[in-house]
């Protein structure tokens, strides 16, 4: 075991896969010489050279188009979209092209491409550099969607994404880049579509993703110590494929479901999980499901305004305690 930041885990994950497979190439804005605007890809250019680690113009359609064309013809590209908000300017390539090519061609074309992007709020960047857009991706048939919460998951899930034969959107959370975690030494390969139970309780099941995972864990601590409520915490990790088996088992065990989502309210990923639970384990539920989300708003910039709209530990605890009143 060694301690690693989430940021350094990104570079280690990419390096692990590039060292293993010559077909893995990496491109994006400022990723090579500058080592990424979040300093998450430093050292890769030096280690793998300019043929495999490439800076691009600010041209997101070109970046993802190039990644797609390369993936269709034998490479396994990792493309970076600097901020997930920028996916909106190249969404045609993601939603219409990458996601549909295999299906439309009846399996003639394979699309092993990974799109890494910095998602989420917490850095006071305002409405166009802070969004949580994992639900955009989740709605498109043909895309796999992953969002790691820990350094070990960054490496393991990135490796799984690179090795996967289908397009994967890999949402890194920008407020987690500085966080640390223990990572096993040596090659790390995880599996897409597996949720992780981080804490086992009896009263309520908190289902969280990415930056909401540490908040869910902190909330669970306080629920136990201050309110005598024993909470299970599940890190969803992968929205597509979705590990409904683990989720439904853990929800049924406590009989209470709370989703903790950073995305704005409407059509957030939690709504899908609530709907599945309502349909498939209705008689195991002891009360109404609760979705704790960012309200249906763009994100404001000032510290206190951003904090007022994101699900904080205080708000999570308060809303859950209210359901037990």
């Amino acid at each position: 075991m060694e301690e690693l930041t989430y940021r350094d885990a990104v570079a280690r994950g990419i390096a692990q896969e590039m060292a293993r497979d010559e077909r893995v190439v990496f491109l994006g804005e400022d990723v090579a010489l500058a080592g990424g605007v979040f300093k998450a890809t430093g050292g890769l250019l030096e280690r793998f050279g300019p043929k495999r680690v490439r800076d691009t113009p600010i041209a997101e359609q070109a970046i993802l188009g190039a990644a797609m064309g390369a993936a269709m013809t034998g490479l396994r590209p990792i493309a970076e979209i600097m901020f997930s908000d920028f996916l909106a300017v190249c969404w045609d390539i993601v939603a219409n092209e990458m996601a549909k090519m295999r299906y439309m061609s009846n399996g003639q074309v394979t699309m092993p491409v990974v799109i890494r992007t910095a998602n989420g709020a917490g850095a006071r960047f305002g409405a166009q550099h802070s969004q949580s857009v994992e639900n955009w991706a989740m709605m498109i048939p043909g895309l796999k969607v992953v969002a790691p919460a820990t350094p070990a998951d960054v490496i393991g899930l990135l490796a799984a994404a690179v090795r996967d034969p289908d397009p994967v959107l890999f949402f890194e959370h920008k407020s987690l880049y500085g966080t640390k975690g223990h990572v096993p030494v040596g090659e790390l390969v995880d599996e897409l579509g597996k949720a992780k139970v981080l804490r086992q309780g009896n009263d309520v099941t908190l289902v969280a993703l990415a930056a909401m995972v540490p908040r869910a864990l902190a909330a669970a601590e306080r629920l136990a110590s201050e309110h005598g409520v024993s909470a299970t915490v599940v890190d969803v990790r992968s929205l597509v494929p979705l590990d409904t088996a683990t989720l439904l088992r853990e929800i049924a065990h406590t009989g209470r479901l709370v989703t903790i989502e950073e995305n704005p309210r409407l059509c957030g990923w939690g709504a899908e999980i609530v709907s599945i639970a309502a349909h498939e384990i209705f008689y195991s539920l002891d009360g109404p499901a609760l979705r704790i989300t960012t309200p249906h708003l763009p994100l404001p910039s000032a510290d206190n305004l951003e904090d007022a709209v994101l699900p904080t530990v205080n708000r999570i605890v308060k809303e859950i305690v209210e359901t037990f009143d």
Binding site: V25, K51, Q61, A62, L64, G65, A66, A67, M68, G69, A70, A71, M72, T73, G74, L75, P77, D92, I93, N96, E97
Partner: peptide
């Protein structure tokens, strides 16, 4: 989708070059 395939063709060319 008009224009979509130009960058994709560039990507296939990149792969051939690589």
């Amino acid at each position: 989708i008009v224009g979509a395939h130009l960058p994709i063709a560039a990507g296939a060319a990149w792969s051939a070059q690589y």
